[in-house]
Design a protein around this nucleic acid. Structure first.
Lengths: 144, 144
DNA sequence: CAAGATAGTACGAAGTTCGTACTAATCAAG
DNA sequence: CTTGATTAGTACGAACTTCGTACTATCTTG
């Protein structure tokens, strides 16, 4: 827990700008098939991870207006990627779940991500690979 | 350059998903002031890095239609963040440059990025910080 | 210099986001 | 149990974004 130097921060920033770009390309590639925009893709993944969640849950998580999320869900339902079912306990709510097609689309989405990660690791030798993963996890945990 | 294991790839993917999310928040925070959408922000940064570039250069780099870029540039010009000047050699082209206000906005944009990177580094001890930067640069260079 | 390629913009159609207004269901007292 | 406030969600329309088509102006090449 030491304050990094200005120079170090800038080096990492430059490297990460390139990573971010790489991930965007990966996202775009995964979306190409289903023609999902960024919001719809993120919505689909969230619903896949949180079956039974409601419109508001996703809206809050992705930081968009409730009505925007309602539209996004409309599009995903029309493409048969998710389903709106009545919620058991609260009849105002809907319970969202990914359809079989939707789960497949999520897999493709994540596979593209994973492919980008694999490409990164491939540039390193085995010891470095282990070290990068260790450091990444340490950071991810610290951010809470 | 050794093939990483499936397990390693997944660990890194999970960690990077969290990073990506963090960067999106940073981007959103930087955009909040100027109310720039993602495309406009990226366009502004590119023009800042490539003064004198043309509409088509940015469009190709960001992978959008020429007309889309023309609109984005319209918006940035209207906000006085960039300028369209006639190109010296080729009078069909425009030469784009960031205005003083624009350069300031870019600084804010990048500062938010840098802040996210600094936060990451802070979770590590000095030896680990140096190692993370070294590995990141190695990967960034290998990707070409 | 004529034909074709290139850089860019105008315009309009299709789609996205979000605020306002509304319905339906739940909760909290009284 | 009813009434008033809250909560989950959708319908609708305005403002904005993206992009294809059509067009102008300017190189480039044979």
């Amino acid at each position: 827990m030491t304050e990094p130097t200005q120079e170090q921060v800038e080096q990492l920033t430059r490297a990460f700008e390139r990573f971010t770009r790489k991930f965007k390309v990966a996202e775009a590639a995964a979306a190409a098939d289903n023609a999902l925009n960024a919001l719809d893709a993120q919505t689909l993944v969230f619903v896949g991870d949180n079956p039974g969640c409601g419109t508001g849950d996703v809206a809050r998580y992705l930081n968009v207006a409730m009505t925007t999320m309602s539209s996004a869900i409309d599009r995903l339902v029309r493409k048969d990627l998710i389903e709106r079912r009545p919620h058991e306990d609260d009849r105002r709510s809907v319970a969202l779940t990914a359809t079989k097609t939707g789960r497949q689309a999520i897999e493709d989405q994540i596979a593209a991500y994973r492919e980008a990660c694999r490409a990164m690791l491939r540039s390193l030798d085995p010891r470095e690979q282990r070290e990068l993963i260790r450091l990444s996890e340490k950071i991810a945990e610290a951010q809470t």
